[in-house]
């Protein structure tokens, strides 16, 4: 699987780890990954450490996630490499996400 989800025990954090190419092929899988955690969580963390490539479709998928998830929940985009970070910043994703 290209996406793994971990829920921390006794915690309000959910980690979503994407591996490889983050593109349109993950459209359904990515949506399924967060659909059980739309409300009641403090943080959803999208771990980009193992993402090699990200295209504009992936940005759209992240925006769609932001729309679906409760505004009380922070979405953290974590561990991006320089290439991905640059893409996120050009599109000013820092306005909607926490980029670490």
């Amino acid at each position: 699987m290209s996406i793994t989800v971990t829920v921390e025990q006794n915690s309000h954090r959910v980690g979503i780890r994407v591996v490889g190419s983050f593109d349109f092929s993950l459209f359904n899988d990515f949506r399924a990954a967060y659909s059980d955690y739309l409300t009641g969580y403090q943080e959803l963390i999208v771990d980009m450490q193992a993402v090699e490539y990200l295209d504009s479709a992936a940005l759209g998928m992240l925006l769609s996630m932001r729309n679906s998830v409760s505004s009380e929940t922070d979405i953290v985009i974590a561990n991006s490499n320089a290439f991905i970070r640059n893409i996120l910043m050009i599109s000013r994703f820092d306005k909607r996400f926490i980029i670490t």
Binding site: S56, A57, G60, M61, L63, S64, I90, S91
Partner: peptide, 8 residues
Amino acid sequence: LPDYMFCA
């Protein structure tokens, strides 16, 4: 546009 599409 649906929420996953935009235009840079």
